[in-house]
């Protein structure tokens, strides 16, 4: 992580704000804003599901993603899949066999980095719901611009002109890479550098999680 020491100020993320129990009726919910990008996530479960989708060894995770327009598309299905697989790595599903956990995500505002905002918000909603988890995770998005520079947490303008965008998810235990979603053209070295930068930036997200939990722990 040599990059971190050279440019410590480069690891400023967009301001994050979060509220738990945003929805009163769901088992766990959170609203998260990263800069101007906002998402709401509701978690319900473990609950009864129809026997065809039950698994005898672990709980079934179902992720529903709703865009602002409300029209489902193939890209949304792909996003759902990415989020579901990431959640499955974090949730201890083996403690709740033959049940289902439903995660519903609603996009509110997209000014760049929506996928990482959704992933982080999902993690916070899962924490709020009290579902047992193996670890938490943090998602960071970065973009490679025309000149080949790496921009952490790019804005909408950056994304429009970017050569490539990457989203990385790290777990909280060993800070291992859980998910990597990339789009566009880039070299192997750029990928490695982006990975290292996002890895360092993920600590900020984990610190943010701890701050939020500390704030809410006062009232329990």
């Amino acid at each position: 992580m040599g990059i971190e020491e050279e440019k410590p100020k480069a690891f400023q993320l967009k301001p994050m704000k979060c509220e738990f129990n945003f929805l009163s009726k769901s088992d766990g919910s959170a609203i998260l804003s990263q800069g101007d990008t906002v998402a709401v996530v509701s978690v319900n479960g473990p609950l009864d599901i129809k026997s065809t989708s039950q698994s005898i060894e672990k709980s079934t995770l179902e992720v529903l993603y709703c865009t602002k327009g409300g029209k489902p598309s193939v890209a949304d299905r792909y996003k759902e899949n990415v989020i579901r697989q990431t959640c499955e790595a974090a949730v201890l599903g083996s403690l709740y066999p033959r049940t289902g956990i439903t995660v519903t995500i609603q996009e509110l505002e997209d000014f760049g980095g929506l996928l990482s905002c959704c992933l982080n918000c999902t993690c916070l909603a899962l924490l709020n719901s009290g579902v047992s988890m193996r670890c938490t995770y943090a998602a960071i998005t970065c973009a490679i611009d025309e000149s080949g520079d790496i921009v952490l947490e790019p804005s909408k303008q950056h994304l429009d002109t970017a050569r490539a965008t990457m989203t990385f998810v790290f777990d909280s235990r060993e800070k291992n890479l859980v998910t990597s979603v990339t789009e566009g053209v880039f070299s192997e070295d750029t990928y490695k550098e982006a990975l290292a930068r996002c890895h360092a930036a993920s600590d900020l997200v984990f610190n943010f999680y701890r701050e939020i939990i500390r704030k809410y722990a006062n009232v329990i």
Binding site: T136, S172, F206, I213
Partner: peptide
């Protein structure tokens, strides 16, 4: 992360 009693904890600690 390593934690001790009466700390605020997160899954994976």
């Amino acid at each position: 992360m390593k934690v001790s009693i009466d700390d605020v904890v997160l899954p994976g600690d």
